[in-house]
Structures are given as structure tokens and as C-alpha cells.
Design a protein around this nucleic acid. Structure first.
Lengths: 199, 199
DNA sequence: TGCAGATTTGCACCTAGTGTCATAAGCTGC
DNA sequence: GCAGCTTATGACACTAGGTGCAAATCTGCA
């Protein structure tokens, strides 16, 4: 990794850290890009060579996460059905704890529920991921799964996960992450059970 | 309906028409709100008392459509399961041809595929609708369906419909609306079949 | 060291969107 | 049909996100 790349990575991380901090302290809408850039000690204009918009800051590793999902789709057991792959790859709510549960993850949860722009962007990212996942799925099961059906299946599964997760977040009370995951999983099984069981 | 209301409705429609026209002729991004307001002969500031943003122009009847779906959920047969309600209410792709297939509907399709902001907003609208539908569903089947499961089920169905519809749109070729609907329906049945069949 | 290519950044500019406020228009009771 | 209230309108000023451009700066490499 060249000096250039290392420096760039450092600046990028500095932006994420600065933004996380400012969002938490002053709120998302109240924090301007100029603020963030200043905190990371770069020019305002330069910000946009790192992130295309303020929302992107909340999903800094979106692409690598999606890529990880796609890669995970590659290794499959001989008797895997499409749904088995989806379960294995997406069952943990799509929330692969890629980052080491830094300060950003809980913040993101909060912003998802409070800032429309962030929610919209998240849905878009997930939607695009679904498209790519379905593409791979259709490729992996030629004959068995045409692209429209693959898309429907992926959408159904992702929709169930998203719905259950969201409902859990809406539900008040002090539940541990463990409990939430468990309840989410249970709701999905209850919903899609017939699709999951063999024969 | 008072003169005030009629006038307001007329202005609102004028804005939609003007926007539709301008979007079609010059493109979405190239059309400014000032342009639209000028074409509808109102002040730029006044635009925002009719629509909160440019995207909203593309979904002028979103709220009434969702409301129609929610109302449709009310009349159910004695032996309807939750999934039966969802099928009946959402199976036509959520695309109730409420407006008389004016120029806006095909334009919306195009914008959905080309303008990220529009796509994001559409997903948000659908997502919120899912929340409300799930709420009604959970209420309608107490004991049987807790709110998390209701959300998962609604998400799954809506996700399947959305996925299949999107895949159909991605698919090139000159298919009639009829053919598309048919293929979409078929993919959904193929995907969710086990959930739909009784016992 | 010196050059080529990439990065940074200031500057000017455009558009979306909001707050404020004076004015105009519609409504309601008499 | 008029007085008084409410609501809609639009002008003005302003903030913030975002882009294009060109000069300045930095890095990689010979």
C-alpha cells in the first residue's frame, strides 16, 4: 500500500470519526459537511472526493459488506436450494458485524429511524444488493431459477428480514441484541417456515 | 367543496401536469422547481405549500393509494388467513391504476429506474406502507399474529412483489403490461407457493 | 533533482429548501 | 354586501448540499 493510499485511508477514517462524533453530539441535520471537513482538517471541497454525499458517511463500508455477501454465496453445499443459500447468507439480518461494532453501528440504527434521508439511502443500498444477490442466484441455479423468480425469492427473504428487524427496533423496552436477533429469527421462521423445510 | 379548495386542487394538478411535461421534455434533473412553478404560474416559494420536495411530485397520490390499500384490508372473508389478505390487496403489484393511466404512470416507471432520488423515495413510501399494513394485519389477527411476525410476513410478500416487478422492468423486450403482470404473478406463486396453499 | 500524474483546495456558481413578513384572496357572520 | 377573520401567496434573504474549473500542492518514479 503506497503512502498515497495509506494517507487517503487515514483521511477517510478521520472523516468517518469526525462525522460520527459530530452527529452524536449535535445531531445529523445540525451537522454540516463543512463542519465535518473542518473537524477532519480538510477542505470542504475535498470532502466530496471521499464521499458523494452526507448520507454515504453513514454507510462507509456498504460496498465491501455487499461484496462479502456475494462472495459468501459462492461456497455452497451440493444439495443447497436457493433458499438455503439465502438463509445462510442473510439470516443474521444482513448486519454482518464487519466493523468491530464501533460507535457507528448504534448511531446508524438511530439515524435509520430518525433521518428520512438516511433511511431512504439504506433502502436503496439494500435494494441494489438484492438485485446483485438475485443475479448470482439465478446464475447458480440455471434451469431451476429464472431471473424474475430469483428476484422475487430474494426480495421475499430480504423483505422478511427487513420487516422483522424494523419491527424489533420499533418495539420499545431494553432488549439485548441477542434477544432481538432471536425474536427476529423466530418471526422469520414462523413466516417463511414452509419455504425452509425440505420436502 | 369551497372555491378555495377547488382552486387549490386545480393549482395542484397544474403543478403535476407542468412537471410531467417538463420532466418528459427536459429530464428530471434538468428541470428546476422554479421552472415548474413558473410553468404552473405560481411563485417558487408557493410550490412548497403544495409539495414538500421535487420527488413528491412523482407520487402525488401516494397517500390516497396507501389509504385505499388499508381500507381494502378491512373487508375480509371469515376464513381468510393473513396471507390471503395480502394476496388480494397487494397482488397487482401495488400498482392500483388509481389515476386513469395518465402520462404520469409510465413516466414514473422510467424515473424509478433512472433517478436515484425518485427510487429512494419510492422505497420509503412502500416501506412505510408496509408498516401500516402490518399494523392492521396484526390487529386483525390477535393471538395468531404478533407485530413482528406481521411485519415479516408483509415484508416478505411486498419484497417478492417488488423484486419480481423490478426484474420484469429490467427485462428488455416489448412486453405488454398484461404479459408483465402475468409473469410477475407467476414468479410470486412459484416463490411463495407453499405459503399460499391451504394445509 | 525534476517531471508526470494525481490530490487538494479555493472560488464561483446552481439548486433545494426554510423563515419571515407584508399583502391579497376567500370565507363567515351579520 | 360589508366587516373581520383566516388562509394562501409570493418576495426577500439565507443556509446547505453539491458541481465545475483551474491553480497549487503533493507523490511516485526515473
Amino acid at each position: 500500500m503506497s503512502l498515497r493510499d495509506r494517507k487517503r485511508a487515514r483521511t477517510r477514517q478521520a472523516l468517518i470519526d469526525a462525522a460520527t462524533d459530530l452527529f452524536e453530539r449535535n445531531g445529523y441535520d445540525e451537522t454540516t459537511i463543512a463542519d465535518i471537513a473542518a473537524a477532519a482538517e480538510i477542505g470542504t471541497r475535498t470532502f466530496f472526493s471521499y464521499f458523494a454525499s452526507k448520507e454515504e458517511l453513514v454507510f462507509p463500508d456498504a460496498e465491501s459488506r455487499v461484496q462479502a455477501l456475494l462472495d459468501a454465496l459462492a461456497n455452497r453445499a451440493p444439495d443447497d436450494r436457493p433458499i438455503d443459500l439465502l438463509v445462510r447468507v442473510l439470516s443474521d439480518g444482513g448486519e454482518v458485524s464487519d466493523d468491530i461494532i464501533g460507535k457507528l453501528t448504534p448511531l446508524r440504527m438511530r439515524l435509520l429511524q430518525t433521518v428520512p434521508a438516511v433511511q431512504g439511502r439504506a433502502l436503496q443500498i439494500q435494494f441494489n444488493a438484492e438485485r446483485r444477490i438475485a443475479g448470482i442466484l439465478a446464475e447458480a441455479f440455471p434451469g431451476e431459477l429464472d431471473d424474475v423468480t430469483a428476484r422475487a425469492l430474494t426480495g421475499a427473504f430480504a423483505g422478511a428480514v427487513r420487516g422483522a428487524s424494523q419491527a424489533m427496533l420499533d418495539r420499545p423496552g431494553d432488549l439485548t441484541a441477542e434477544q432481538r436477533t432471536q425474536a427476529t429469527r423466530q418471526a422469520i421462521v414462523k413466516t417463511l417456515g414452509p419455504l425452509l423445510s425440505r420436502d
